[in-house]
Write a protein that binds this DNA or RNA. Structure first.
Lengths: 339, 339
DNA sequence: CTGAAAGCGCTTACAG
DNA sequence: CTGAAAGCGCTTACAG
């Protein structure tokens, strides 16, 4: 039975509207489904009645009937990282254009799969978009069974059926190396994300390989774990070494900010004259003059667009074939690298 | 009829589990409702069968039956503002502890109500939590009809039935003024949020009134509109005036960051020796050495906790009575103010 | 402790 | 173009 809230009037339903408009409940439903065959006059009568009652279709009931929720689960490890906050914002505003909404799953740790994510399937979500967190094989299997596409933004995946969207990771590293070489830097270093991040690995490969072409080897690498404090520690190690680098490439802007802070405040270094720093992402803060960071961009809007494209395509074609999209970026030269 | 996805096997249901376990569908349901009367052995048999099939309860169906979705709508104007990102993160992780999730509604503009929010009611959300955006009287009325509590975080509301959670706004202004007076500042200024923000107004009142007690009048006020560029403009106006302030209180950290940037880079001022700056919020970035901002804290965790408390209380008591909670903060002294 | 049945509010063939 | 009816996958009195 209805466990009605004590004081709460029940929200009006199709039947209520139907009664007021003097039509059948099915007619009311048709008034709200585009392309349904219904007379214009009937429709108007219904919409009028609906307005009077303050009727809103119950989307839970609709989901149950259609097996489609118009809800997309977004798994995100850390909203405090401005890059991911940005991606979330973009996804949200682009999805609203097509009448879909985001059910948010934040999880404490990067890289690992959140067991809570299986609950997303309980909500009959139309897709699962993951940023920073990664799908486990079990989760992927469950999603496959349920016909729910998974898209990972900014992370690779070896799991069959998991789609991916990422920036030009390898090229980011190459372009950063190229720019630093051209501007006469001599001692290079890389601040990586985590050891398990394929994204970080590709950026690293691009950077190291390009430097190797110019005969530069043994580039020191420290892991910042994509966190502010982790990157600070990495910077401390690098900057206190006997052969102090004059050029540091960081696997993300967020870490680059931390490296900048440490270089300036703790080591009293002049940026860019004593050390140049390059990030990846181009988050809004990168252009703020407190950081003024040179960076290889990964446009959040384009990443979000690509992810949504994949979801829509897979759902409309009931396709199981994972898709992979690479989004273009470019080096944005600012004040953290010398000319 | 079922519009089954072409390749998609249908997710298993209670009936499937029942068949495999050799019990009735109702029994399966009972196995998943705590406190239901069911034999331990039956339950185990069912759970085992469920595991084999990969069964997950369909929460849409449950919602429909119980009239409770365990979904909370979160309206947030701008995830790029770290304060709100932080609040969202806190809400999300605290809600997951009690098995609830967030349906995200981002909206382009601060302060105004997003018409899209009415759609939240369609999802039968258990509550609507708003940050930065404000409820319109119409929305409040609809929520009231549907028995959905509204809680506004960090914004006031004159609308009956709308609950609010905020920091010590008036006191933030007082304490900032007090600290700046004690540290011998002479020329004060305030960077406000928007004209319609009661939060900004209260901070301003606390600041101005406290200064007035010491005989300081005609404190210049500029509106930063809570945006980075708006605050930069406000800073430019204030800092280029003939009687340049040596102490600026900003209605938010985010605006304070922008003011800091402008003071340092565009006006070449030494902070804090030539101008001291105080914000409100204590977002994580405030402690980063790039900003090292003195600020009056508004702990996101406590705000989230209070909002959830209100929601839970109102829903369990089916109460219509709006609640108001003020969360304590404190002045956190860092390097952006002189000693 | 258990099952059969009604109901939650929709969608959608089906028959007219 | 319209209505009656079955079904989506759950919960929950009711009767046993």
């Amino acid at each position: 039975m209805v466990s009605k809230k004590l004081g709460g009037r029940r929200a009006p339903t199709e039947s209520d509207v139907a009664k007021l408009a003097g039509v059948s409940q099915s007619a009311v439903s048709r008034a709200y489904t585009k392309g349904a065959s219904i007379a214009q006059k009937t429709r108007e009568k219904i919409l009028q009645a609906a307005k009077e009652l303050g009727y809103q279709p119950n989307l839970m009931a609709r989901s149950l009937a259609t097996n489609q929720s118009n809800i997309i689960a977004l798994a995100i490890s850390n909203l405090e990282n401005p890059f991911y906050a940005n991606v979330a914002q973009q996804l949200s505003s682009q999805l609203r254009e097509i009448g879909k909404h985001i059910l948010l799953f934040t999880s404490p740790s990067d890289d690992e799969t959140d067991p809570m994510l299986e609950r997303a399937l309980s909500y009959q979500v139309d897709a699962l978009i993951m940023t920073a967190t990664m799908a486990s094989p079990e989760l992927a299997l469950q999603c496959k069974k349920a016909g729910v596409p998974i898209v990972q933004i900014n992370r690779g995946s070896k799991i069959a059926g998991v789609s991916t969207v990422w920036g030009e990771n390898h090229r980011a590293g190459e372009v950063a190396a190229e720019h630093l070489l051209k501007t006469k830097h001599k001692r290079f270093a890389f601040v990586a994300g985590s050891k398990t991040s394929s994204t970080s690995q590709m950026r690293q490969d691009g950077f190291i390989e390009h430097l190797a072409k110019s005969g530069i080897k043994n580039v020191p690498i420290e892991y910042g774990e994509y966190s502010f404090s982790g990157a600070a520690n990495a910077a401390r190690k690098l900057l206190s070494s006997k052969n102090r680098p004059d050029a540091i490439f960081c696997a993300s802007d967020y870490m680059a900010f931390s490296v900048l802070d440490v270089a300036k405040r703790e080591f009293n270094l002049n940026v860019p004259n004593e050390v140049s720093i390059i990030g990846v992402d181009d988050v809004p803060e990168a252009s703020h003059s407190a950081y003024d960071l040179t960076t290889f961009s990964q446009p959040a809007g384009a990443l979000a667009k690509a992810a949504i494209e994949i979801v829509e395509k897979m759902n409309s074609e009931s396709s199981r074939r994972a898709m992979h999209i690479e989004v273009e970026g470019q080096l944005i030269i600012r004040g953290s690298t010398k000319a």
